[in-house]
């Protein structure tokens, strides 16, 4: 704590700052992804929306599973963190069904999205998630969650607005994005609490930041490789 300003310069503050930098780089670099820059340029067609849902679903379906696996590898030192992970996994574990219903409401065939394959970016992302979650006391996974939750909290809302402007879609076709845009605020609170428990040193903080960096890059890869299966 700095005596003059009362501002804490702790490992936790440094980690929050590091994550903020990862996020800023991630969010702005998304503009270099053709799918995203075309969305911002007002050029989306319904096929773009269907492709995004179809590709995202193959990754989202794994979300709750890697969080559960991470929870199962958190030892007794991290019991409270494990509780938070389990709650989080429970909240997320049917999310992919919303994507499937949206897909059908937007005019897609259910068998296309349910039977879809991960694109090569989603393969890399999922492979990394399961590997990282399989380590002992995988506290670094908080960095992965930070990026995934940030997508819901900061990106889903603006994207759903842009999609609504460009595509004539009924509300039941866009609920995944509008829901996450509106409802992920409490997830960030959960995340802040988890960070307070977990970041006991700069080493832990660096590990969390590293995980966030990798996931941010692989998530962008997933969007760059739409339909490349």
């Amino acid at each position: 704590m700095n005596a003059e300003t009362g501002k804490p310069d702790t490992a936790l503050a440094r980690t929050h700052r590091g994550l903020a930098r990862v996020w800023i780089d991630f969010e702005t670099s998304l503009m270099t992804v053709p799918l995203v820059s075309r969305l911002h340029a007002g050029k989306w067609r319904r096929d773009d929306y269907l492709a995004l849902l179809r590709n995202l679903r193959q990754q989202v379906v794994e979300g709750s599973r890697w969080i559960s696996r991470a929870a199962s590898n958190l030892g007794t030192d991290y019991e409270e963190l494990r509780t938070l992970f389990i709650h989080h996994a429970e909240e997320e574990h049917r999310d992919y069904r919303m994507l499937e219903d949206n897909y059908v409401a937007a005019g897609g065939l259910r068998e296309d999205i349910v039977g879809g394959e991960k694109n090569i970016g989603s393969e890399a992302l999922s492979g990394y998630m399961y590997n990282a979650a399989s380590q002992r006391d995988p506290v670094g996974m908080l960095g992965a969650m930070f990026v995934i939750e940030g997508l819901g909290n900061r990106i889903a809302g603006p994207w759903s607005k842009l999609m609504a402007e460009q595509l004539d879609l009924p509300p039941e076709a866009t609920s995944f994005f509008t829901y996450h845009g509106e409802n992920d605020e409490d997830h960030l609170e959960m995340f802040d609490r988890a960070m307070e428990i977990a970041v006991t040193s700069d080493a832990v903080g660096s590990d969390i930041i590293k995980h966030a960096k990798v996931v941010a890059r692989l998530y962008r890869l997933q969007l760059e490789e739409i339909d490349n299966v």
């Binding site: 903020a20 930098r21 800023i24 780089d25 702005t28």
Partner: peptide, 13 residues
């Protein structure tokens, strides 16, 4: 704005 602030954080770090 976040990019400008990110530069600030980089220089702090």
């Amino acid at each position: 704005l976040p990019v400008w602030m990110g530069e600030f954080m980089r220089l702090v770090d």
